[in-house]
Nucleic acid binder design. Structure first.
Length: 417
RNA sequence: GUGGGCGUAGCUCAGCUGGUAGAGCACAGGAUUGUGGCUCCUGUGGCCGUGGGUUCGAGUCCCAUCGCCCACCCCA
């Protein structure tokens, strides 16, 4: 048997309904703020991610699906969405449109990772990017959008964890200070931290090892070392969110896995799900476009892990989506097929979800089947009904049924809502 | 990348010290020829993950390999 590639999965009905509903909600909420969908290639030149995401990141150093095409060009399946958006922004001249530009993307990303529950090598992200606005208000809008979207799905205890990464110019000063503070305890750090010490010192902050964590708590937060402008920027973002009634929590050790973030960096969490499970995260990336050879255009955005989101979806939303029940149309007489099909067409046109019986089951077997597929009602077209142009409409919960003229079946079924 | 556990029907699993592959659920039909959910009967469904080895004989023992799960690591 041929099996799916490691780390991929098949999303079957009815689970797939949740995906469709979540994406529809995203288009609705983000669309309401004029974020319009951009559809990008899932493969890009490898160099885009090496330069965009950063060579020292885990993603680029060991998690990319990279392969040569038939002419020897190195391609990579996108491990995240922002780099591709930045590339398209430059290549398609989006900086010549009225600024800022608001974009939404939904789609699969790929990372060659060790498998674990809730983590896949192909996973989906929903993200937005706001390009061409450097103000704190831009950050506030993006975070508000994130909050609105998740609230629309029924999350009710969301907290934004916010950090200030400063500007790239602040980085060496901060890192030097951090190392100075940690120097006397360097031998107590874990082996990974020793590696990070030289390769990616910022990520020292992010270590999950308890002893390392303790040591980090005593270090000076990045936010206190950054330039006045950077500090004012993030403080204004925080104040703006608070003024909107969106809970914000300062997260001095929050560091994200992508090199391009500066100033604003954040995650959104739902505390009752556990503090380690961020639903989404993002930040500001004012140098990314220019680093990739484009104009100096600032940007901010986030990505939500759709797989994980669907895993933790509030039950209300879940039940609403999965609770939709079909109406079964059941021809139970010779020659009833056409009338049944016409009726099905009419019911669908009235917005009902119809499930036709097309296997020639007996009335009895048909009803049994209807119960199994969760039908809320069955429309029976037997010989008696057919003779007088009627149908029997049976409510599958109450068992009540009545004869209705064919033209009035849709009306009968939509009335009970 | 490191450590541990597990691979038998679509799903959950049983299968003893090696001797002709099983159950429940699910699916299909019927008992009830115009009425579902309960019950009962019948049926479909397997190269026992794959390859090699030991043996008269392997689902069972040995080796390898692939896959899945858990933890670490990392991360949306």
């Amino acid at each position: 048997m041929i099996r799916r590639a490691k780390g991929t999965r098949d999303i079957l009905p009815p689970e797939s309904r949740l995906w469709a509903a979540v994406e529809e909600q995203a288009r609705s909420v983000f669309g309401g703020l004029s974020y319009e969908e951009i559809r990008l290639p899932v493969m890009e030149p490898t160099e885009l991610f090496v330069r965009g995401v950063g060579e020292g990141t885990d993603i680029v150093s060991k998690e990319m699906f990279t392969f040569p095409d038939r002419k020897g060009r190195s391609l990579t399946l996108r491990p995240e969405g922002t780099a591709g958006v930045a590339r398209a922004f430059i290549e398609e001249g989006l900086f010549q449109r009225p600024q800022p530009v608001r974009l939404l993307y939904i789609g699969p990303m790929f990372r060659y990772e060790k498998m674990q529950r809730g983590r896949y090598r192909q996973f989906a992200q929903i993200g937005i990017e706001l390009l061409g606005a450097a103000t704190p208000q831009a950050d506030v809008e993006v975070l508000m959008a994130l909050h609105m979207f998740l609230e629309a799905l029924g999350f009710d205890d969301l907290v934004i964890r916010l950090n200030n990464l400063g500007d790239p110019e602040d980085r060496p000063r901060f890192i030097a200070g951090l190392k100075r503070e940690l120097a006397s305890h360097k031998d107590e750090l874990c082996s990974d931290c020793h590696r990070r010490w030289d390769e990616n010192p910022l990520r020292l902050l992010d270590c999950k090892v308890p002893r390392c964590r303790e040591l980090m708590l005593n270090t000076t937060p990045v936010a206190e070392v950054v330039s006045d402008e950077a500090r004012a920027h993030v403080e204004e973002v925080s104040a703006g969110l608070t003024a909107l009634g969106i809970p914000v929590q300062s997260a001095p050790r929050l560091v994200r896995g992508l090199d391009y973030y500066l100033r604003t960096a954040f995650e959104i969490v739902s505390p009752h799900l556990g503090e380690d499970t961020a639903i989404g995260g993002g930040g500001r990336y004012d140098r990314l476009i220019s680093d990739l050879g484009g104009p100096q255009v600032p940007g901010i955005g986030f990505a939500i892990g759709e797989d994980r989101l669907i895993d933790v979806l509030p039950s209300g939303f879940r039940d609403r989506v999965l609770g939709v029940r079909p109406v079964v149309v059941l021809p139970a007489a010779d020659g009833a097929e056409t009338a049944a099909m016409k009726l099905a067409r009419s019911l669908v046109e009235h917005g009902l979800e119809v499930r036709n019986e097309v296997t020639g089951r007996s009335l009895r077997a048909g009803l049994k089947w209807a119960a199994k597929v969760g039908a809320r009602a069955v429309v029976i077209l037997g010989p008696d009904e057919l003779a007088v142009g009627e149908a029997t409409v049976r409510d599958m919960d109450s068992g009540e049924q009545r004869r209705v003229e064919l033209e009035r079946v849709a009306e009968e079924l939509t009335a009970q809502d």
